[in-house]
Nucleic acid binder design. Structure first.
Lengths: 336, 336
DNA sequence: GTGATTTATAAAATTGGTTGAGTAAAAATT
DNA sequence: AATTTTTACTCAACCAATTTTATAAATCAC
């Protein structure tokens, strides 16, 4: 590997001069600077990121932490979409990304230790158990952190607006004439709590008394659970006319239960999902869903993280809400 | 940050002794070693990976290169599954992973340069245009490389056995009595060529003359293309009794076309996909598909890459085939 | 023309860890 | 007791950059 030393020898200048020339310092003569830059290019010089990081204490590397309880990891398409967008924005700003350890079994370091060991300039946290002491340790540390879909007081967060999203979706379903609306929601997280509260609040505002028998706690992205609860709902004496699911994946499980009963969507029963991602979006009939803006979530998270790294003084702790978009689809029927 | 210097001061030994004690060298006394290790733990010492990398020229970081033409990136579920498995195995062996630049627009370095700049110990290449000069430059370099689903002479590759997979799938469809079998395959890559050759060869072995009118070149993971070609096939005078798709995602587009024509699967027409991943696997009727072993692809790729890094002498260039598994599902009907 | 200022470059310390060579003391061998 | 070997440790160079301080030459003021 060609180093600054090689360039300095070829140019007959000191290593310090090479460093300054390549970093465009003002105290190097124009001619020397140009010559050094040319020689560096000709010799195929590349900075050594380890050496630079050692001295400057900056790696231009961002850590990504996600530990999905279901071990779905990258296969989790909501997260994959957010991460993909995060990555693009990070790269546009000269940062690379590294995963902070996720396989808990073989873990030898805490997340914070791992981040410090790798010297990441900042960490984005998503899709984790936000009550995990290791996560809290990381959030409390001096390392710049941005969390996605969960807010802590001490760090900036970028959050999909689940309250507004659920309101829009519920309002839409109500507008279509439904009053007995079931909701098979995910397990207990702040996302779930927000959506559920918004769901019930929206119903109340419309003068519909929430029927808690129609609300089932499933798991996110679990077709078996949604299949089971859909069956339970369909077997009620007074079944719902519409079922909302925690996500589009879970909705598929519900569709299977509905089909098995010989019912069809949306003629006999209406359904709606959440996320608006991937394969579910190309199914026919088109699925009604609330599309979260994963693109924006990821890129805003990256921007905020980079700002808090590069301008720590001027960056303040914020909670940024990202709006989504209702996808009306064809699975909610107008009734009455 | 606590460094070896801090430990050496506290223990009254030299920095060299600390380094050797922590790395368990044999020339440090048992008592001293234990004391140093205890103090290091108590002080919360963490090695500085940049410093270590600078001296040892090893980062314990693996580069991941994938540049999907469709810009689907991490959203590409086949790749996401492979990568997830790769990551787990890498982490079990003490390696972290970093993405080698993928957003071509803002690119300032070639892939090789980026890998060298970050000092990755090795690179896994998947999902790229394997004819890209930059990819070839990287493959030809001295950096350990493992490619997935494409083979070069100079580096080890881990390849899903598409020939055998397509043979099994085709044989199954033939066993079910089909003779007019269409294939909407993906764009021209070595994967496609292998599958297509295997498809035609299997038909020939069974005495079925391939009908090239039934073979359409679509794109991978493109529901619109598969929708279009499915319609073309269904409108033929003598339409196929079964359509194979390049992947399960494309199959959905086909299903939509079939439904629109008022036909049902598998009663009126049989279909089969490829990959056996994600949401397609929970649809009803259960999709017939050939499941690629993404778990094994990723973990074997990681193992081979790590071996070629850690024991370059004893590692030889191989082409490793990974077997998949036929998922019979319910979308191929027995006829005649 | 002398002293002050500016400009361009070099020298040297520093970052944190690794490692081969060197060394003193202890232990083993003769 | 003298010599060799072993043990346990230190020294110092090194990795590739950055950065502060020093220095020489050139320019400027008076």
């Amino acid at each position: 590997m060609v180093s600054m030393k090689d360039i300095s020898l070829k140019c007959g200048v000191s290593i310090a001069t090479v460093s300054k020339a390549l970093n465009d310092h003002s105290d190097i003569g124009a001619e020397t600077k140009i010559k050094i830059q040319r020689v560096a290019r000709e010799m195929g010089y590349l900075p050594n990121s380890s050496a630079r990081a050692l001295k400057t204490n900056r790696t231009h590397n961002l850590g990504v932490l996600f530990v999905d309880a279901a071990r779905s990891g990258l296969k989790h398409d909501y997260f994959a979409n957010v991460l993909d967008s995060f990555k693009v924005t990070a790269e546009e700003n000269g940062y690379d990304i590294t995963f902070i350890n996720c396989n808990k079994e073989h873990q030898t370091m805490t997340y914070l230790e791992h981040g410090r060991y790798r010297g990441v300039d900042g960490v984005v946290i998503a899709c984790v158990d936000f009550e995990d002491p290791q996560v809290i340790e990381l959030v409390r540390s001096e390392i710049p952190v941005v969390t996605i879909d969960h807010s802590f007081e001490m760090k900036t967060s970028v959050v999909s607006d689940n309250v507004e999203g659920m309101r829009e979706l519920t309002d839409y379903v109500c507008d279509m004439g439904h009053t007995r609306i079931a909701y098979i929601h995910g397990d207990d997280t702040s996302v779930t709590r927000n959506r559920l509260a918004s769901f019930n609040h929206t119903l109340e505002v419309r003068g519909i008394a929430p029927d808690y028998d129609l609300q089932k706690a499933g798991k996110y992205r679990d077709t078996k659970e949604s299949y089971k609860y859909t069956n339970e709902l369909l077997e009620l004496k007074d079944p719902p006319t519409c079922i909302l699911y925690s996500d589009d994946y879970s909705l598929i499980g519900g569709l299977n239960a509905i089909k098995e009963k010989g019912l069809s969507v949306p003629e006999d029963i209406s359904v709606a999902g959440y996320d608006g991602l991937g394969i579910a979006m190309v199914l026919k009939p088109a699925v009604t869903s609330f599309k979260q803006d994963t693109e924006k979530l990821g890129s805003v998270a990256a921007q905020k993280l980079i700002t808090s790294i590069e301008r720590p003084k001027s960056s303040i702790v914020e909670r940024i809400l990202i709006e989504g978009k209702l996808i009306k689809g064809e699975t909610v029927k107008k009734i009455k």
